[in-house]
Design a protein around this nucleic acid. Sequence first.
DNA 1: GTCTATACGGAGATAGAC
DNA 2: GTCTATCTCCGTATAGAC
Lengths: 196, 196
Amino acid sequence: MTAAATRHHIVEAADRLFYERGFEATAFADIAAQTGLSRGNFYYHFKTKDEILAAVIALRLERTERLLARWREEAGSPREAIESFSQMLIGNRTEIMRHGCPVGTLCAELAKLDHRALGRATELFYLFRDWLAGQFTALGRRQDAERLALHLLMRSQGIATLATAFRDEDFIRREVEAMNGWLDSECPDTAPLPHP
Amino acid sequence: MTAAATRHHIVEAADRLFYERGFEATAFADIAAQTGLSRGNFYYHFKTKDEILAAVIALRLERTERLLARWREEAGSPREAIESFSQMLIGNRTEIMRHGCPVGTLCAELAKLDHRALGRATELFYLFRDWLAGQFTALGRRQDAERLALHLLMRSQGIATLATAFRDEDFIRREVEAMNGWLDSECPDTAPLPHP
DNA sequence: GTCTATACGGAGATAGAC
DNA sequence: GTCTATCTCCGTATAGAC
């Protein structure tokens, strides 16, 4: 295996563990168990645990950019693109009920740790915000596109947090419905036709 | 100092530190520094760190019950009582921007740790939910009181999470306004009169 | 009740063989 | 590049003096 491949392997395992258990609670031993590598080997690829965190955030940023690009390509309209966002909560409901939103929980943990990487992690939110704002702009809401985008982000975070505490799948579905209803009321001309 | 007083002193310090830094990231040494007690002394009052956590959650449950009772007493109407809830986000904005919501971030951390105390921590959410549902019932919305209550809780969590990541006070104020606007639309007959 | 001293394990990190 | 062995520090928890 090449160095780059091993490195990527480590980052992928860390990515999942940081999400499932949290950054601090994840030990090198956990990553070692996941990857089948020895602890000592990590230090050939990363000098510190913080460097692994930085690589994980970079990976998430790349993936998020690709995801958003795909949503835009596959959507027939900005409205449909936005609904890809809200549908994500349903598609990922199992993981969300167990570990919350990967972005929100990482930022929350880093904020408490007063960790220097918080700013970088917040970039993940900015990606979603700017992408959503772009869709609202395309819907003719250029003036308040950012406000609308942040409102959707806010709702997604609230849904994820409560879903984790309550472990309630119906709650997620109901609130995603309400989110789409809010979209209808804000952008009525884009609302999908009701079923006949 | 009596044993009960010392115990309470420990729990209060742990309460603050668990909120500010998180449960796992808080060490006995931190609590010792806060209280002026020695590490060894803790074990006279609590057998394990988990017992301190249980005591912290119990303290928060008591305090929350008292807070909700006070809100109800001081409010001139159920609608005013509900607005005490949304106003809390503004009153506590500084702490929220630094450490998030004490309830949401604790539940999120315990969920990731797969900690047995998660259920007990979730009781904090249930207190707010049931209290809010009670206000909606008093407003004549008995049928969907719980749904409305969870929606408000959801928004409070989303606001807190984004406020922590973005460190944006204006965002909080704007979303609290939107929250009150949502209240107006759901319970129009209770809406306060617009300023003349 | 509170202290000091200490056990014990696990964390991140390093050194050097292969 | 990857391993094993090891270092050091810090975490929770215990023992026992006062």
